[in-house]
Nucleic acid binder design. Structure first.
Lengths: 137, 137
DNA sequence: CGTATAGACTTACATTTGTAATCTATGAGC
DNA sequence: GCTCATAGATTACAAATGTAAGTCTATACG
């Protein structure tokens, strides 16, 4: 199959990945800088460790540039979002999409505009076939 | 505050919790039985260990009944879903609800009926105030 | 009554995760 | 050229997680 398997990305690693996706390739110093700006409690050493781990996991790539290295994602944000979403959906909602959507819509954080936009989006959606394709049973 | 703090429930532990929520109070044997039925690869010893851990974490309670014990949730499924959802939303979507909903709506697993029902739901939703209440900044 | 057995209690152990500190090599500045 | 700051590499270490295996004990059955 063509399905690339997405490495498992932990909670903290997600923050790092998002800092890389934001703009890349980028040297460690820059990524660490972004992380600190978003959350000052980030320790540079910790960030560096996570970068290294993400390289080991093949979530990031790592190339010499000048006298230093730059990091680049090996997996796209889209792919990772999709993988994490399926996992979350299975774990928390037993794989059932609609109850999950209902939960979030009812969480009452949507503005009138959000609601309108979502409604429009729903209208333009093609319906899934009756026998929905299921992931591994 | 009245906010009970929900223990962190791991991936595997979620399966166990869902087996308990399904019907309780229930003895270990029954919960293990349910788990195996859902997924035969469950080892009884593993399930028992997880039950014990969930009791330690105060996610489950544990009472003698007859000559054995029965388990019961100390946290509701709703609470846990809410906690896990916030965590997922923050981690994967940086806390932004709408992009998340868009992602799932576009995942194309919704039937025409689902879509219709969601549209109705959206229409009945009260909009959030302009300055949305944010969790801890 | 003695014994196998089912639960419950205790212990095990590798992996992953969060969080760094230390060591090392190399270039930049004096 | 020598020295110090830096980036990268190596090492550390506790807690959480996944996955069980032993042990102990009371009970039901023969």
């Amino acid at each position: 199959m063509s399905a690339k398997n997405i490495p498992r990305i932990s909670e903290t690693e997600w923050e790092v990945m998002r800092a890389v996706w934001a703009k890349h390739p980028a040297p460690a110093s820059e990524i660490i800088e972004r992380l600190s700006r978003a959350d000052p409690s980030w320790h540079p050493k910790t960030a560096k460790t996570l970068l290294t781990r993400l390289v080991q996991k093949k979530a990031l790539d790592y190339e010499p540039r000048g006298r230093s290295y730059v990091y680049e994602p090996l997996v796209t944000e889209r792919e990772c979002i999709a993988a994490a979403s399926v996992s979350f959906l299975d774990r928390v909602f037993g794989g059932s999409l609609k109850p999950m959507l209902v939960h979030f819509v009812e969480s009452q954080q949507l503005t009138r505009t959000d609601l309108d936009e979502l409604r429009t989006l729903l209208e333009s959606q093609p319906a899934a076939p009756k026998d929905k394709p299921r992931r591994k049973p």
